[in-house]
């Protein structure tokens, strides 16, 4: 039986063998949370390897989220993986080196990433290339003040309250429902 330090070290070495400089480091947080830090440019390859690997089988994506550490450290996208077979957690962090927040989408690997990535895009402004439907999910469709969970976003928003109220009341049903949903909710229509 390997200790958690040994097994994390083994995983780290195996990943370095496979991907070389794309693996930026590994650590153990809170006693049993293993963390792998990787380059966002190669995140898709590393994550698909982790999913398909016979030895690890991290086949369930629990969460996609992001952290903004401010101007110095920038934004990180965080993937939380779970191996159903081996009952192992793994956290994969992708720190962006600069202000250009672009990472490839993992919707192809895990369908559940669809809405999770939309949420990260909505609140942090990270662009997931290859995402089938990248649009806002929590904020209103006509929200135009930016991405509210970024550190440089002012708490009360960028616009004045008058403008925020006006924009909010400009939302329409068509923003949130498909035409057939609206038609069904209105009941049978009269023919003109």
């Amino acid at each position: 039986m390997k200790t958690i330090t040994e097994s994390t070290q083994a995983l780290h070495e195996e990943l370095v063998d496979q991907f070389g400089s794309a693996i930026l480091g590994s650590e153990i947080q809170c006693e049993d949370q293993r963390v792998i830090v990787i380059d966002p440019k190669q995140s898709f390859e590393v994550l698909s390897w982790l999913k398909d690997s016979e030895v690890y089988q991290y086949d369930l994506l629990i969460d996609v989220t992001a952290v903004d550490y401010g101007a110095k450290k920038g934004v990180q996208v965080v993937y939380q993986l779970w191996s159903v077979n081996y009952k192992q957690l793994l956290r994969v962090k992708c720190p962006f080196p600069g202000p250009d927040l672009e990472i490839s989408s993992v919707v192809e690997l895990w369908g559940c990433a669809n809405w999770l990535e939309r949420e990260v895009f909505d609140l942090f402004g990270v662009h997931f290339s290859g995402h089938p439907d990248l649009r806002r999910i929590l904020m209103p469709k006509n929200y135009s003040e930016g991405h509210p969970l970024r550190k440089d976003f002012p708490l009360r928003g960028r616009f004045s309250r008058e403008k925020q109220t006006e924009i909010a009341l400009d939302q329409s049903y068509e923003d949130y429902y498909r035409p057939e949903q609206l038609r069904d909710s209105l009941g049978p229509q009269k023919e003109d």
């Binding site: 009360r156 928003g157 960028r158 004045s160 309250r161 008058e162 109220t165 006006e166 009341l169």
Partner: peptide, 19 residues
């Protein structure tokens, strides 16, 4: 909006706004 824009400013201004 029920209140006109000046009124909204007066109502919400006491709490402040980033702008």
């Amino acid at each position: 909006p029920e209140a006109d824009l000046e009124e909204i400013k007066a109502l919400t201004g006491v709490f402040g706004n980033s702008t």
